[in-house]
Write a protein that binds this DNA or RNA. Structure first.
Lengths: 204, 204, 204, 204
DNA sequence: TATGAATGAGTCTTCATTCAT
DNA sequence: CATGAATGAAGACTCATTCAT
């Protein structure tokens, strides 16, 4: 019961500091001393709570899994696909883009570190990615069976969509000034491409 | 003239070992001692040639920029888009998928480390990403002006395509057994989605 | 206030060990590992307190500057010159020679390393040497204006005296068995030479 | 026969470079690589000729001993003391100060390194210092027995003189701008102090 | 419980020395 | 003989982790 939820305020400070530092410098590039300093606690306190440096990462992962397993955005996205209402999409963006962007560093961190830590990878794949896949592919399959969607591999369809969005968001962060498009418009276009393709239908 | 090409055999051994280790453990997670061991040279030899650990990464980057500025695959991809021949796509996959997949770890490494080393980021964005963007967006713009392609932001169109492919490849590596689709087919589907969308045209 | 004085016992152990090792082998010839061993602490502890190897040297310098700026011996020497009492000289020697000789290695070290570290040189020249010059030249100038001392350049007069004493002390350390003179007598003779010259006055 | 003289031109280049670098950075602070570079030879060449880094220092010492055992200046200084001609002193300064100053770094180097290398110390004490002592004390003893010089310990008298001169020269190098005295005058004053003391004879 | 000084294994880096060419 | 690439032992320094207070 005290497994994943209960975070004392000290633990919360440390976790927040760790997410910040890990995101900026990567797990290996970060030092517990800097985390302690940013968290405003003594270095020893970290080890009292998390045992090892990796313990912090694992706690972060655990917390994230809970939060990301059925995130608002994705639920909305699933609903959107199910209902096929393009206007709804704009609304989602406006409502939830902020929280997505706020959590983007954490997600990026976890997916990146997954490469190097098999326990992290396992959980990210099994829990986070799988649940996203399941959540989004469900409405897709529904609309495939109704004939509205073409019959590609559903997982692949999810990837195409998620990867496009992810790619856009990450790119915007790396090279912020390169892009002059309005956020809303950009994401609407990405969705449009995914839905209807780049080819002009008149043409085909 | 001897700027980026000429690598002595010792240097090549070290670079190859470094790419392997860096890819597996990240830059910070790797040790020069392990690189030396894998390369089959003394640790001191590394520093005789590259000065610092970071010097190895920078040399890797330099070599990669040369190789990636106009990679075969992308040139073929550009041609494919220009000519609109789907069959051609299959052929490209068969011919060049191997080399892409072989270089994927290196590319992933460099984009990953770009987060933490601004010199790397600068070059990856300015040289590698930009040249890919330019290369692929050219034929897209051409077909947009002929009315064959819809008028989205060209950069966004490139992202949708590249990110989808990248996402598929990375995912396949992370979770190899999850996917039973044939490689060729999978990539062909990804391209199809990008070209024509997921929505069944009859339906729209 | 806690600038230069407060040394924890750990810091004191390290500083003492460092003075010993540096004096014996020079700064570059010493290793932090040996200093740690002599100090009876872990090597890491040194860096926790002084940051770098050079940091130890700088702390030593700082401490020394405080101690040497107005050392007992020199104050006594100045008084001696002012009052012109030769017997007083003998007394000073007996009282303070021990402490001078004990600090000689440290002083030698600092003047030696001043050659190679400009920050050290600056402080040794500006703070230590200058304050010695000022301290000793003051009574000299006083006795010059009263006509008791001949009118040489005062700094030069200080040098002649200090260098003679220094030379004798250093030499005695380098070649201990060469000299059979009694310490007191020897230094009294050095002072006598400086005061009255080697030439027999009857002769001139 | 080929013991101390014969230096091939390559050896000479290396020795010269080594004296320069050793003087600037101390023995331990110098690298064979820098010496090789300054000498314009390959690093390996140094070891072909001198075996080890210390071998260079020993060769320097050997050469120096030959040159310093009866150096012109000291012979002149001895003559000066013997003949008691103050004007002669000025002449010596003008003639030989340059060569002294040129060799000062080498001498300083050897006396400094003597602290850390017992073989060097032995030779510097036994050969160089002793021969200087003997050379200069001889005329002193002569004038003592004639009653012209007071009967201090002769070695001490030599020290007072040499240390004063040495002190002045070294100080002038360390703190060049501090001293406005003319070189000639300064050294003449140092000699005068040694000969006749600082006390005004009228006064005594 | 929180602290932070102390630890020491492990890292990057240097450099005297060797040796095949 | 001279070269300079390669070596590897040793050095300065870092940092996760421990523990007495």
């Amino acid at each position: 019961m005290e497994r994943s939820m209960e975070l004392t305020s000290t633990q919360k400070k440390i976790i927040d500091a760790a997410i910040k530092i890990f995101s900026e410098k990567g797990f290996e590039g970060s030092t517990t001393s800097e985390i302690a300093q940013v968290a405003g606690v003594a270095e020893g306190t970290i080890f009292r709570h998390f045992g090892t440096k990796k313990g912090i990462l694992q706690k972060i992962l655990l917390q994230a899994v809970v939060n990301f397993q059925r995130p608002e955005v994705l639920v909305s996205l699933a609903k959107l696909i199910e209902e096929g209402d393009d206007q709804f999409w704009i609304q989602i963006i406006n409502e939830q883009l902020g929280s997505v962007q706020q959590q983007l560093p954490l997600l990026k961190l976890l997916f990146y570190e997954a490469q190097f830590h098999s326990e992290v990878q396992e959980i990210m794949v099994e829990k986070v990615a799988r649940s996203i896949l399941d959540l989004i592919s469900e409405p897709i399959v529904k609309r495939q069976s109704s004939g509205e969607f073409r019959s590609f591999d559903p997982n692949l369809m999810v990837f195409s969509l998620i990867a496009s969005i992810w790619g856009y968001l990450v790119w915007k962060q790396i090279a912020p000034d390169q892009e002059k498009l309005d956020e809303e418009q950009a994401l609407a276009q990405v969705l449009d491409i995914w839905l209807h393709g780049v080819v002009n239908p008149q043409d085909s």
